[in-house]
């Protein structure tokens, strides 16, 4: 739909446009298993590359480092170490979480690549790189990253 901005006596300078499209994304075999394990078993599963001897997230049919096919699944701890974080102050269009919130990359124990998620139950002034955190699982899980509410500091942290 195009609408002309301004009245009939005004010059036509700008038209307003709008795109309203719905998408549905297929998970594919690897994401499907990953999210089923999150939803049904509260488990975070990675895939192990035999050649690089590392566990990858998100699960995918190839190793991001050496391109070898990967099909061995490994359970990862729902606990890890904060690799980097940011305290987001401004709202960004399209984002479901209301600011302020802390977005972080977490290296789960046993993984070689980091897990993107939120930190909760933490004073922003005390958040730090190297902090130990553990997943807080959502009660109502649907098979998305939101099946984890956030990661909270483990005892003696935060």
């Amino acid at each position: 739909m195009l609408e002309v901005a301004g009245g009939s006596e005004e010059p036509v300078e700008v038209v307003e446009g709008d795109l309203d499209i719905e998408y549905r994304y297929a998970y594919g075999e690897y994401y499907d298993r990953f999210y089923r394990e999150m939803r049904d078993n509260r488990r975070i599963m990675g895939v192990a590359c035999a050649r690089c001897r590392c566990v990858l997230l998100p699960p995918r049919p190839y190793c991001g480092f050496c391109y070898e096919p990967v099909d061995r699944w490994v359970e990862l701890a729902d606990e890890g170490t904060v690799q980097t974080f940011t305290n987001v102050q401004l709202p960004f269009p399209g984002q479901p979480t209301e600011p302020p919130y802390i977005y972080a990359f977490i290296m789960l124990d046993g993984a070689a690549v980091q897990f993107p998620h939120l930190l909760g139950e933490v004073d922003p002034a005390r958040a730090r790189v190297g902090m130990r955190v553990k997943a807080v699982w959502a009660e109502n899980r649907k098979g998305t990253l939101h099946d984890i509410k956030y990661f909270r500091p483990v005892e003696n942290e935060g």
Partner: peptide, 18 residues
């Protein structure tokens, strides 16, 4: 990736903040 980190990726600033 809509199947992974899209819901946390606050435009460019958050990524570069990390």
């Amino acid at each position: 990736d809509p199947l992974w980190d899209r819901d946390f990726a606050c435009g460019a600033p958050a990524l570069v903040a990390l």
